[in-house]
């Protein structure tokens, strides 16, 4: 946007873009794994739509940092900056919806703040576009949370389990990311209120227990991930790495 960005500011923006880009890339991959396995065909289409939105965001963000494919396919696990929440393997559909609810509410609020940053903020134009996509993702998660929470006894129990299982990964979402001009405390308060509100309407409650542990608090942003993430990357990167220098 501006003619000559200050190098220090540019580095910071890069760190922010990498963190958000990795979030989008990894969650998109997990959602794409659902393809062909969704509970109903309409949901195959819906989950693929969300995955495609996220992949688009990832490509834009990573391109701000460097070559999108080099970043996606040639980095080691420890160099990824995504939160641990998005790398969690798909469980049942309720588990995925819980992950979607936690993350899409976060992403919508975060992009909302970045978009409001005005022209000075390097990620503002991207955030302004992405926030509309993410609003739809949040709506999708919300609709399903209502139906699973207030559906049958089985679905209620599964939704409960999904929410509880992922709760420990939500604290990390609010650890400040270098280079992002965000009011993290306000973000966290708004997130708790929004998620809590949806859960209440779904006859559910916010899980209890810590929202972060020593292993999950800020760890993903610092390049420390969970075991399944390595296997995910092995699968994702294998073909690209097998043909060094090839074009696809």
């Amino acid at each position: 946007m501006s003619a000559a960005p200050d190098p220090a500011t540019a580095d910071l923006a890069t760190a922010g873009a990498l963190a958000l880009g990795d979030d989008a890339l990894v969650l998109s991959h997990r959602l794409a794994e659902w393809t062909g396995h969704a509970p109903v065909l309409e949901e195959d289409v819906a989950l693929a739509n969300i995955a495609l939105d996220l992949l688009g965001q990832a490509r834009t963000l990573l391109s701000l940092v460097g070559d999108e494919d080099e970043l996606a396919f040639l980095r080691e696990e420890r160099a990824f900056r995504n939160v641990q929440l998005v790398e969690q393997p798909n469980g049942d559909f309720a588990h995925t919806i819980a992950r979607q609810l936690y993350f899409s509410v976060y992403q919508e609020l975060l992009y909302g703040q970045l978009a409001a940053g005005g022209e000075a903020a390097p990620l503002a134009p991207l955030a302004a576009k992405a926030v509309k996509e993410v609003a739809y993702h949040r709506d999708h998660a919300e609709q399903w949370t209502l139906r699973l929470g207030d559906g049958t006894e089985t679905s209620h129990a599964r939704m409960r389990a999904g929410l509880d299982g992922l709760w420990r990964y939500t604290g990390e979402l609010f650890r400040p990311v270098e280079g992002l001009a965000v009011d993290w405390a306000a973000l966290e308060a708004a997130w708790l209120e929004t998620v809590g509100g949806v859960l209440e309407r779904a006859t559910l409650t916010l899980p209890e227990g810590p929202r972060a542990t020593g292993w999950s608090a800020g760890a993903g942003r610092a390049g420390v991930h969970t075991e399944p993430f390595g296997r995910m990357l092995a699968e994702m990167q294998h073909l690209h790495r097998s043909h060094p220098g090839a074009s696809w």
């Binding site: 995955a51 495609l52 490509r59």
Partner: peptide, 16 residues
Amino acid sequence: RAPSLRRKAILLAKVQ
């Protein structure tokens, strides 16, 4: 396992 992000997006859109 798509070897580039562009190919991944195309393939996902196609399967969708």
